[in-house]
Structures are given as structure tokens and as C-alpha cells.
Design a protein around this nucleic acid. Sequence first.
DNA 1: ACCAATATGTAGCTCAAGCTACAATTGAAG
DNA 2: CTTCAATTGTAGCTTGAGCTACATATTGGT
Lengths: 158, 158
Amino acid sequence: MSRKASPTRNPLLHALPTEQAQARRFGKARTARSTAILEDYVELIADLIESTGEARATDIARRLGVSHPTAINTIARLKREDLATARPYRGIFLTEKGEALARRVRARHRLVLEVLLALGVPRETAEADAEGIEHHVSEGTLKAFSEFLKESRVKKAS
Amino acid sequence: MSRKASPTRNPLLHALPTEQAQARRFGKARTARSTAILEDYVELIADLIESTGEARATDIARRLGVSHPTAINTIARLKREDLATARPYRGIFLTEKGEALARRVRARHRLVLEVLLALGVPRETAEADAEGIEHHVSEGTLKAFSEFLKESRVKKAS
DNA sequence: ACCAATATGTAGCTCAAGCTACAATTGAAG
DNA sequence: CTTCAATTGTAGCTTGAGCTACATATTGGT
């Protein structure tokens, strides 16, 4: 095998991105993956507090479909990252930072869901896919999404 | 704290999904996250073989932005899952199963990218976000996406 | 034919996220 | 006020994905 530093051997058809560009993209995706779980928890905690008045570990675990120790471990990580607070046998609360993140995440989630629906994705499919997609939607894409929705609402109104 | 099995305490505003439904969705997202990496590797290997004639471990590592042992470990996982083959110091090849996955993944990737572009997302942003989003786009959503593209092409032609 | 650079492989670590099994605490109902 | 079911917490394991450091193999150039 060649020893040269990966010489792109071929002027090719649908050209690969440069190594650097591609590595940057994959890196972003990796970061998004690792924050996705924190975002899910924060969003869910906010939802639970808003709708039921409290966020309890078991409810979180059940809604995420994981065991309660898993939930507790991740909540510990939330505390480490200063996103949530919890004292033994009391409920879970969001810090200011956590609240701020929750607001951003929920707004993004709603927008992604609306776009999927506007594109004709069936409701249940859209709800499911949005759960995964949302974490990978950057500011730039969000912007385009809300523009698109604005337009498509105008069109519908006419 | 109550001992009752999470009684939804409140007839609420933008109602939470049921526990089961939500757990199902989060479960899907978790599965997607764990297969995302395999998909990335398979897609990249296919691209490398097509454009340079071979897929070498270092190139894969560099393009993913990870160390080469990480790449080698993951390639070992690909072998375990019967997606790729590799003999010591020879390049990496896809099995039939791997090729099939690569075809699906690349088609999905292209479609997601096109949709983002059609929605007005700037190219570089779209390329980056697609890398993360693609893994969470189900068949149903894909179908809607290709319908949408068909329509928007028709409109543009008029 | 050799040597040095590159590529590949191996060892051994960290961390996050999942799990099961068990212990401790709480609080509602009797 | 006791009891007991539910909740919460703890211990200890597995697996995947990342890393660094080191060892071995390959190969192009001299």
C-alpha cells in the first residue's frame, strides 16, 4: 500500500470533500450525538414540570424507556454540567442554564416537527423522526426552516 | 412524593405523548444513534473505493477525524456485523450486506441533502447537518422527501 | 538490498450509557 | 404509628467509542 499521504488518486465523478472538511462535519455530528442525550433530558424535564408540576426520576426513566438507574446516572451528569439540580428524594429541577437550553431545544423541536409535517410526513412518523433529527439541526438550518414555513403558510392562505 | 404510578396530574395545554409512545420514539432514536457510526463507515468506505480504488484505514480515520486505532476498532465491529472484510495490511472491502447498506445510506444521504438545499439551507450548512440528520430519517420520511422534491422541481420548471 | 517513512496492528486506558440486583427512604392507608 | 408499595439511591457489571503509546509490517527511493 502506498506510503504517500493519501493522494487523491483520481479526478472523480461526484468528488469527495477534502479530508479537513469531511472531518469537521463528522466531528460536529459526533458532538451533536453526545449532547443529544442531555438535550432530551432537559427537554423532557421541562415538559414534565410544565404539565405535571414536577419531574420525578421514574417518570423520566419510563418516558425515555430506560431503567431508572440509567436516568439517575444521566441526571448526575446534568448536575455536573450545571443544567439541573436535585437533592436526594426530592424532584429534579432545571438551573437557569438548563431552562435556557430547554427553551432553545423545545423551539427547535417544534420547528423541525412543523417542517416535517409541512413536507407531508405522516404525523406519527414525523414525531418519531423529529426526536432524532432535532439534535443535528444547526442555527443556519433552523433559519431556513422558519423562512420556509412562513412562505408555505402564506401560500396556503392565498 | 406520590407512590401512584405516574398519574398524569393535569389536563394540560400541549399534552405530552403517552409514556409508551414517547419511550418508543426515544428508543428508535437510540437505535439510530448506535447504527449511525456503522452507516458512516460503510458509506465512507464505499465512497473511497469508488473514487480512489481502495479504502485504507488511515484515510478512513483522517476523513472521520478520529485516531487510526479508533477506526480499526470500528472496522472490527463492521467485520463482526458482517458488513466488511479486511485481512491484515490489505485494504477494507464491503460484503454484499455492506454494499447493500451503503447503497441505501448514500441514496438517503443525497435525498436529505437535496431537501435541505431545496428548503434554502446554505450549501456548507446543509452538507454538515445532513451528516447528522440522515441517520434519523425513516422510510416514511424519505418517501415524503422525494415527493416534495418531485413537486418542487415541477414548480421550478414552470 | 536496505532504510526510513507510512500504514497497520495491539495494549491498555477513559468515559458515557446502558443494564441487573440490592439497599434505603418516603409517604399513604390502615 | 406502623406497614408496605413505590420511589430513589448505590454497586458493579458490559459495551461502544474515543484516546495515547508502542510494536510490527510494507513499500518506495536510494
